[in-house]
Design a protein around this nucleic acid. Structure first.
Length: 243
DNA sequence: AAAGATCTCAACCGCAACGGC
DNA sequence: TGCCGTTGCGGTTGAGATCTT
């Protein structure tokens, strides 16, 4: 065990001790969050600023929720993951008391490994139920709502949407270009996501149509303008996000 | 009871984004 | 406008816990 309390000595790694936790907690309660580069020195911890920040965010922050995820939390996680992909911090932001690390770990162990097991189980007998597995990630892309430009959009081999002169629009994911929004647009509007879900859920419930999630895939699929994920035209959602 | 396999999750690492100068 | 320091994020690792044989 390396000594605690001398920031000029070798930076400690590994599990945090109760003493270190107490020092960091006292420091943050006294001086507040932020300026993490100053924390090790000012608090007298032999830890790097990253380690301090992570420890605070993932463990010491008050109101952190521990234990198993509840069913509705998992449901919401699935919905948000379908919409946002592996943007754990955004997903965690919609799950009170959960951290990005929390969510990521849960996903990687329970959800992803579960899907993997299922895939292995079926890999020899029949083709996957969801042959097209792609997370649609927002990419930097300048566009104008009024501008009638349709650079063909298609997923590259890493599952990211790219434009290509050789790919006709019908050969892409059949997603209108306005759906391929720059991250800033999506991020700016992320606060609207909850409202959207609520509004559409209300609407769908009125029409006796339910959300369709599950299957353990990361698919946002579209067929004839409809998508398996949302049971409503995805363009409509994205336009309301962009409006 | 013991050894090996598997699972879980805290912590680390690398990188991109951001902001100040 | 480019550089540099800082921050925040997602992917990965590895130690400890738990399960299986």
């Amino acid at each position: 065990m390396k000594p605690i309390g001398n920031p000029s000595s070798v930076v400690r790694k590994g599990a945090w001790t109760a003493e270190e936790d107490m020092i960091l907690k006292n420091y943050v309660q006294k001086f507040g969050e932020g300026k993490w580069h100053l924390v090790p020195h000012k608090a007298g911890l032999s830890r790097c600023r990253k380690s301090c920040r992570l420890r605070w965010l993932n463990y010491l922050t008050p109101d952190i929720k521990r234990g198993d995820f509840e069913k509705d939390e998992v449901d919401l996680m699935h919905r948000l993951h379908k919409l946002l992909g592996n943007r754990w911090s955004l997903i965690a932001g919609r799950l009170p008391g959960r951290t990005a690390n929390n969510v990521k770990n849960y996903w990687n162990t329970h959800v992803r490994s579960g899907a993997k097991r299922q895939k292995e189980k079926h890999k020899d007998d029949e083709p996957s139920e969801h042959p097209m597995v792609r997370v649609i990630k927002p990419q930097p892309y300048t566009f104008s709502k009024t501008q009638n430009m349709y650079p063909p959009v298609a997923p590259n081999d890493r599952g990211k949407l790219i434009t290509s002169p050789n790919v006709g629009f019908n050969n892409a994911l059949n997603i209108s270009p306005q759906f391929v929004s720059p991250p800033t647009v999506l991020d700016d509007r992320i606060d609207d996501v909850d409202k959207l879900f609520e509004d559409y859920e209300k609407q769908m419930n009125n029409d006796q149509v339910a959300w369709s999630f599950g299957g353990g895939s990361d698919v946002v699929e579209q067929e004839d303008g409809q998508n398996i994920l949302f049971n409503f035209p995805i363009d409509e959602v994205m336009w309301s996000l962009l409006d």
